[in-house]
Design a protein around this nucleic acid. Structure first.
Lengths: 129, 129
DNA sequence: ACTATACTTGACGTTAACGTAAACTGCGGA
DNA sequence: TCCGCAGTTTACGTTAACGTCAAGTATAGT
């Protein structure tokens, strides 16, 4: 059976981070586990938010940015103002990610060029040996 | 005429960073300006390395990683061992960047979904008002 | 000669994102 | 009952990447 709650160490192991990190993320408002006594119990929502947060980290976002993004992501969208602010934030991040993708593509082509140049050099050197 | 050397503040302004950052990068070995008296003079090579470094930063690389990359990038490629290590490093970074691109694409599609959902909601709300 | 401006070195301060150690609680097993 | 383990809180430590003075130098303009 697929369990529907997790302990802190289960999540830590799954995402290859430490319990300390998860508790830190709780302070920052990324996860908000319920408790049995003092012990933290994590629900699917926490797991999703954790996954999103770690993806944000891999993209170089700061925790504070991640928090505001995630919070709007599954926050309330009742008023027109809220929706508009959310849309603006989305657009802003879309632009940033687009630029980042351009950087990546640039770097990838450069890497490819360097690599093929290296291969050639290597082949020549191995032949002459 | 396009100048071929730059002062520290010229570079700082061009790349929207502070002189302090550039001096720090000098300590880290990213740039190595020549001097007139005590004053730093930056050459095209420094500018290129600075540009590469900042691109690395935007991609979330640590300075130490950037340094080793750049140094190998225009470092010596004489021996077979050097070439092989360089190739390995290139492959490693290519993999990392590829994964990062996947993250970005994932996030971009999610953003698009959220945005269109928001647009619909907004349209509905504006109609009802 | 005086001043403003840009540059220098050196040193300490700061923030983010955790690491790490200490001391405690609660629980299942021998 | 005692052990060992997983979890908890509190609090101080650490690293990276600069920021922010302070105090001095060099030069160009008035």
């Amino acid at each position: 059976m697929t369990e529907t709650t997790w302990s802190i160490s289960e999540l830590a192991h799954e995402f290859s981070i430490t319990p300390r990190t998860i508790r830190f993320y709780e302070d920052q408002g990324i996860v908000s586990p319920s408790r049995i006594g003092r012990t933290r119990v994590y629900h699917p929502r926490d797991r999703t938010r954790l996954r999103l947060a770690l993806r944000g980290k891999r993209l170089g976002l700061q925790i504070s940015e991640i928090v505001s993004l995630i919070n709007m992501y599954d926050g309330p969208k009742d008023t027109i103002a809220q929706l508009e602010r959310y849309l603006a934030l989305l657009a802003q991040h879309r632009d940033l990610l687009t630029r980042q993708r351009q950087d990546i593509d640039l770097t990838l082509t450069e890497i490819a060029e360097q690599a093929s140049a290296c291969e050639k050099l290597l082949a020549a050197k191995r032949k002459s040996a």
